[in-house]
């Protein structure tokens, strides 16, 4: 069992100002023992990927409630791949219609959590996903 702390970036891409969810999730992940970097608002995909690389993060959580989710998820995922960081786990949540979720998963998102999701579901999922990722790396 890998004992390194899980490092995760919680990001707010674009112009969306709804940060309640991002901050609650960031705190819940931190309370679960992870090292969390919260980017703050108005991040471009380039800035988010830069933070992920700098922080050597295992995962990046994207919070978006403005309807621009498809654009930002696909852009961030493709930038990560470009930077040779395609193994970073991408997950997210916000106001995202159910019908849009399969598209985000196809693009490479690990999970998309809708409104009403318990933070413990998020924590457990991420712990498991990071454990699997680290196992593969060994």
């Amino acid at each position: 069992m890998d004992e390194r702390k899980i490092r995760v970036v919680v990001a707010k891409p674009g112009l969306d100002g709804h940060d309640r969810g991002a901050k609650v999730v960031a705190r819940a992940l931190r309370d679960a023992g992870m090292e969390v970097v919260y980017t703050g608002l108005r991040q471009t995909p380039e800035q988010i990927v830069e933070t992920v690389l700098q922080e050597d993060a295992d995962a990046v959580g994207i919070s978006i409630l403005s309807g621009a989710h498809t654009f930002y998820f696909t852009k961030i995922i493709s930038l990560l791949k470009e930077k040779d960081a395609g193994d970073v786990i991408v997950f997210g949540g916000g106001v995202i219609p159910e019908n849009d979720i399969p598209g985000l998963i196809d693009a490479g998102a690990g999970a998309v959590f809708g409104p009403g999701t318990s933070t413990s579901v998020c924590v457990e999922w991420l712990e498991k996903a990071v454990a699997e990722k680290r196992e593969k790396e060994q």
Binding site: G14, T44, S66, T70
Partner: peptide, 10 residues
């Protein structure tokens, strides 16, 4: 460029 993906959304 900052408007990408957001036009007419909210």
């Amino acid at each position: 460029p900052m408007a990408q993906g957001e036009c007419g959304k909210v």
